[in-house]
């Protein structure tokens, strides 16, 4: 059996530097741009990209952020410390959308992706149709020393995966739990930590929430109850600060709903996609 998912590379400039970015695509219809979590890659969307209920109505695009998955870091990376910023992240999502000629995509992201969709909704409402934030909140306070995620005395792949392992709900299927963790084990040195620079520091989007106009850019936030990074109360507080935003707390799911247990996410996600897919 060959899946209907196609992978290709694009060349584009991000923050003035040439990049080679890998993306996967499936389906036809309303463009749906998919953003993976910190320290992982677009494989997290594998179940959705194989779900005909979605691909029959949406052109699904999942790209690996630079430094992640099959996307390379820019030339000269060895002399830099990778640190994701709000401007870089929003810029790359828009650049990918432009490069593929997407017409005002629905943007769905998880974790850091669920964070950046709030910035897109606040600042780029004219360029997108709607946003879906999985495990989305405007800010997460640090609760462990992220120095250990990139330290010569700890294996980076193992420590990154072990740190996030408890964010997966105990009820998740074993195969998808360990597939999700494998993606973390494959991350490059310092990449997960560099993403968390945005997630736990620079990317505090609380001041921007009041700027989101859900009449121009509808917002739906779906959060699994076992997530102690973006906790349900964090999502509810974020939604409360955005008039018109919809928030759902999903039982039996954790921080990686599309990857850890897509079957449990699906009943919550499909009605949102139905609604956003019908937007003009």
């Amino acid at each position: 059996m060959i899946e209907p998912v196609i992978g290709r590379y694009m060349r584009l400039d991000l923050e003035g530097r040439p990049h080679r970015v890998y993306f996967e695509e499936a389906g036809q219809g309303v463009p749906l741009l998919l953003l993976h979590t910190a320290g992982a890659d677009g494989r997290q969307w594998r179940h959705l990209m194989n779900d005909e209920a979605v691909t029959s109505r949406f052109r699904c695009i999942a790209f690996d952020m630079p430094w992640h998955g099959k996307s390379s870091p820019p030339e000269g990376w060895h002399a830099d410390e990778y640190r994701l910023t709000t401007a870089a992240y929003t810029g790359m999502a828009l650049a990918v959308s432009r490069a593929l000629g997407l017409d005002r995509p629905v943007v769905m992201g998880c974790s850091i992706g669920g964070r950046i969709v709030l910035d897109l909704a606040a600042e780029q409402a004219g360029a997108i149709r709607a946003v879906i934030g999985l495990q989305s909140s405007a800010f997460v306070a640090p609760y462990y020393d992220t120095e250990w995620l990139h330290h010569p005395h700890a294996h980076g792949g193992e420590v990154c995966a072990a740190v996030v392992s408890g964010l997966i709900a105990p009820t998740a299927p074993e195969g998808d739990r360990w597939e999700t963790l494998w993606h973390y084990m494959q991350g490059g040195p310092g990449v997960f930590r560099g993403d968390l620079h945005f997630y736990k520091g620079e990317g505090d989007l609380r001041p921007k929430l009041a700027r989101i106009d859900t009449a121009r850019c509808p917002v739906a936030l779906l959060t699994g109850e076992y997530d102690y990074s973006c906790r349900p109360e964090d999502t509810l507080a974020t939604a409360a600060a955005i008039p018109g935003a919809v928030a759902v707390i999903m039982p039996g799911l954790g921080h990686f709903p599309m990857s850890e247990d897509y079957a449990a996410l699906r009943p919550h996600l499909l009605p949102v996609l139905e609604r956003f897919g019908a937007l003009p």
Binding site: Y143, Y144, A154, E158, A162, S165, G166, D227, Y228, R231
Partner: peptide, 29 residues
């Protein structure tokens, strides 16, 4: 939820890890 994992307990202050942290982080699994 929130009581199901060592890191979850750390976040809510119900677990403190002290001393030489390296063996703990390097062998967290």
């Amino acid at each position: 939820p929130g009581w199901h994992d060592l890191m979850a307990l750390m976040r809510r202050g119900a677990l403190r890890v002290e001393g030489d942290i390296q063996p703990f982080m390097a062998h967290l699994f």
